[in-house]
């Protein structure tokens, strides 16, 4: 029993890591642009296909594949800002609808280029950390956990310590007042899209050898991430991280001790409970207009 708990703890930590990466990106984009990016799961998918193309296809190193995934998906984010969200800036609802359209296009493109079958991506390493009998952590999963900690800490420092970080937070809180400080909201929107999309791409690339990679893989991730940001409070980065951890632990433990369907139900019930008790989410901004 003791081993099972410990093993489940490690599994949950892994799940929390990549969910947090995707959720934080989505929250960052929402905060600055005011748009819920429904295509965020597809950015995650594109990151995974970056690994398919570079690591499996071109036989390059996994690290290079992750870097390419990060940069490519960041670039896609930049294009999304220019082509979709900027022209629709004054109407967040149409931005949302446009992102649903983009979701379908990206899925179709992935299907055209790579086919709809599941990709098999050989793990980079078969190495497994063994703690004791029955408790182990594949190194591939450890990569994801370490990357999430490093990237989220880096993002935190960026937001708290640099002038671009302050400007980004200021724009998310009050776009017009930010303009009056000389902040270009377009620049900041680009920055938020590159970072937010890049984080989703990295998460997709890092987990590619551990999950089923296919054009529609973004779907299950985006559903989870939506629950997480609603629980955490839409717009709160801290909330997204904490809710990702909470959700991953609840979901993983319930899956282990009951089953996956029950875990999904419990996750949704958790969200409903939070919405009833605190409609703004656990860390939702009280004074957002």
């Amino acid at each position: 029993m003791h081993e099972l708990l410990l093993q489940t703890f490690l599994n949950a930590t892994y799940a929390a890591s990549y969910i947090a990466l995707v959720a934080v990106g989505l929250v960052l984009i929402f905060g600055v642009m005011g748009v819920i990016n429904f295509a965020h799961g597809e950015l995650y998918m594109l990151g995974a296909y970056g690994v398919v193309a570079v690591y499996v296809g071109a036989q390059q190193s996994f690290l290079l594949a992750v870097a390419v995934g990060l940069m490519f998906v960041g670039l896609v984010g930049l294009l999304m800002e220019r082509a979709l969200f900027r022209p629709l800036r004054d109407n967040p609802l149409s931005g949302l609808v446009a992102s649903i359209g983009l979701l379908l296009i990206l899925q179709a493109l992935a299907a055209i280029f790579f086919g709809v079958r599941m990709e098999h991506i050989p793990p980079v390493t078969q190495e497994v950390l063994r703690f004791s009998d029955g408790v182990s952590l594949p190194l591939q999963r450890l990569f994801v956990i370490v990357a999430a900690i490093v990237l989220l800490t880096g993002l935190w420092m960026f937001l708290k310590r640099t002038r671009f970080g302050w400007a980004l937070r200021a724009s998310a809180e009050d776009r017009e007042a930010a303009q009056l400080q000389g902040i270009s909201v377009t620049r900041i929107a680009q920055l938020a899209m590159v970072i937010g999309a890049g984080l989703a791409g990295v998460a997709g690339a890092l987990t590619a050898p551990l999950v089923r990679v296919y054009p529609y893989m973004g779907h299950s991730v985006i559903v989870t991430v939506f629950i997480v940001i609603i629980v955490g409070g839409v717009g709160s980065l801290e909330g997204a991280v904490i809710a990702a951890i909470a959700y991953a632990f609840v979901h993983t433990f319930v899956t282990t001790f009951f089953d996956g369907v029950v875990a999904d139900i419990v996750g949704l019930l958790l969200m409903l409970m939070v919405l009833v008790v605190r409609p703004t989410g656990l860390f939702g901004a009280r004074d957002r207009a």
Binding site: R163, W166, R169, A170, E173, E176, A177, A178, Q181, A285
Partner: peptide, 14 residues
């Protein structure tokens, strides 16, 4: 229209 989530010093530096 100060930025409520930023500290006083961060507001000034912005």
């Amino acid at each position: 229209r100060v930025f409520p989530g930023l500290t006083v010093e961060e507001n000034l530096r912005v």
